[in-house]
Amino acid sequence: MVDKEQILQWLQAFTTEIEKNKEYLTELDAVIGDADHGINMDRGFKKAIAQLPNVTEQDIGNILKTVSMTLISSIGGASGPLYGTFFLRASTVVAGKSELTAQDLLEMLQAGLDGVLQRGKAQLGDKTMVDVLSPAVVAFGQAVGTNKVILPAMQQAIAAAQEGLQNTIPMLAKKGRASYLGERSMGHQDPGATSSYLMLKSLLETLENKTQ
């Protein structure tokens, strides 16, 4: 089970991770985008966790919804609606819950991913965050289906995410700003895929912390 405390820790950990990687993400975006991804994510998630003290008493659904609303109204760009939608959709499937089973977590991640797909209309291979989120959710789902234990399943998911992230390097971008570069987009890692990888990695690390 994943409890509310861990969800709060995860959001905090991800925000710290983003802050640490702010320049790195921005540099990745400078090469094939417009040099703001780290700045955008840092601004948005700092605002989002500043809201958390107001909602610690509430359920996980409401916590994620608060995060979502803050992201939507403070990130902007492509990542604002995408991460915003991710957390909005995630929040609806865990509404009312204070702890999550492996199945809940799977449904939550799947709903978030579906939101991103619907909002951004990107497909696998378009060189976006989808190329990290999608294989990670698939791997997590398979692992959960087999043995129902969260931590190893999340480790599987991270392995898939990492592979997905590497795979974005040779891709020709078809969505987002990198698509304007045409063939010049090839050979560079996607910034949004990188932040999504950090999001999942923070989740894994939060879960591992508890089990330690």
Binding site: D34, N40, I72, S73
Partner: peptide, 11 residues
């Protein structure tokens, strides 16, 4: 107006 080179938000 959004941040520099960043789309504004729906609100």
């Amino acid at each position: 107006p959004g941040e520099v080179f960043t789309s504004p938000t729906p609100d």
